[in-house]
Design a protein around this nucleic acid. Sequence first.
DNA 1: ACAAAAGTGTTAATCGTACACCCATGC
DNA 2: GCATGGGTGTACGATTAACACTTTTGT
Lengths: 230, 230
Amino acid sequence: MTSAPTAAQQEFERPFTTVDIVLLTLVDGELHVALPVRDKEPFSGRPALVGGFVHAEEDRDLEDAAARILRQKAGIRDIYVEQLATFGSVNRDPRGWSVGVAYLALVPHAVLEASRVDLNLIPVDKVPPLPFDHDRILATAVYRLRGKGAYSTLPVHLLSKVFTLGEMHSVYEQVMGTEIDQSSFRRKVLDLGIVEEIGEMKTAASKRPAKQFRLKGTRPEDSTFDRSLV
Amino acid sequence: MTSAPTAAQQEFERPFTTVDIVLLTLVDGELHVALPVRDKEPFSGRPALVGGFVHAEEDRDLEDAAARILRQKAGIRDIYVEQLATFGSVNRDPRGWSVGVAYLALVPHAVLEASRVDLNLIPVDKVPPLPFDHDRILATAVYRLRGKGAYSTLPVHLLSKVFTLGEMHSVYEQVMGTEIDQSSFRRKVLDLGIVEEIGEMKTAASKRPAKQFRLKGTRPEDSTFDRSLV
DNA sequence: ACAAAAGTGTTAATCGTACACCCATGC
DNA sequence: GCATGGGTGTACGATTAACACTTTTGT
């Protein structure tokens, strides 16, 4: 409360609020999660999700808090972040009743390499038991990515802003864990109009150069469609 | 913190935590939201979402808190509830930095009528401006219901446990706001196996008696499928 | 010239919609 | 017997998956 405490508020002990971020990236075709080693109690020395307290004096809202925490604890900014779910209970944190607002963050691997912070990337299927309820949060994140993946542009955020259809195709295969017919994928992506050709640049790789694309206008960052891409 | 406060916690002012519930029901074919009149400051006398503080001493987790609030403030229990999203900012509540965990609750109208509480049901498209950020929360809830509706059993929870395919058909039409071919709807529902015939009871209405159904085993309350029912 | 990835085209099966039709009951 | 909602069947068009084929580059 800012100035005028009311009866209702004073009566109750306030839970404390954290933001917990599942930061995912793709390291040569495999989904990894950032699990930096904790340097404070509780669970000091153990890997855990990127997280921190909401700073009431500093953060204007939860998204601000998430962005700040990503900056301060992971050294990255301007990446894709969406709210996942909120976990609150008396025993998820040994310090007492806490509310953890969980976020899903997707980032191209290159961005993480540019950051100086050691994020301790671990393949999502080789993660050791985590402190707090972070196992559950991680599971929720992966479930969301897989579930929403086929019907949205979510997986694209694992790529850099500019990409080829080949790269996009491959990311969807990796995220969804299935083979996807190249031809069908291509056609769907193209006539759903979720992507736009950028210049006619080409990749300077080894074989035939590919056209470059970027996500279409839909700034709201998300975009869901009714056809499945897998 | 229960016993041993650490440095990190004491430094920060804690936001307070509320649970805000969008309680929806169908009153003769129209979606209504429960907006009981507030009897406390702030915004005393104005209709607002059903809500309350998390009671750290009493609630074991957020779902507990939501259930308790529904019992105490709406006089109902054992209804369908799912977490919607969490809204937290310095200015959503005049009392200061607050975190509101929003829930979507669906209930058959009959259950509300059994409750003694005056819930002030208002058609969702005729809702006056609400206090706090309740307008936004309500919009999110309706958006979720419409968006998820066609691909899940969500709308079914607006019906009593036992229902006919005709009733189900009609609820989906009302929620989604479209006409749905009766024959196709029927076939999809049936061979998706999301529903099971109960006895061979029949309705004692006016015309030809209909078979009665209930949601199939999938207790986890939810259940999503990949085909659209609309 | 060959490998490898980009990109195009065609076909057969599947799915969904629309519509026509029959059934059981109350009045 | 007729109006009304319950319930079934079918046919046509749209969508998809599967696969074959062509193009363009680096080596």
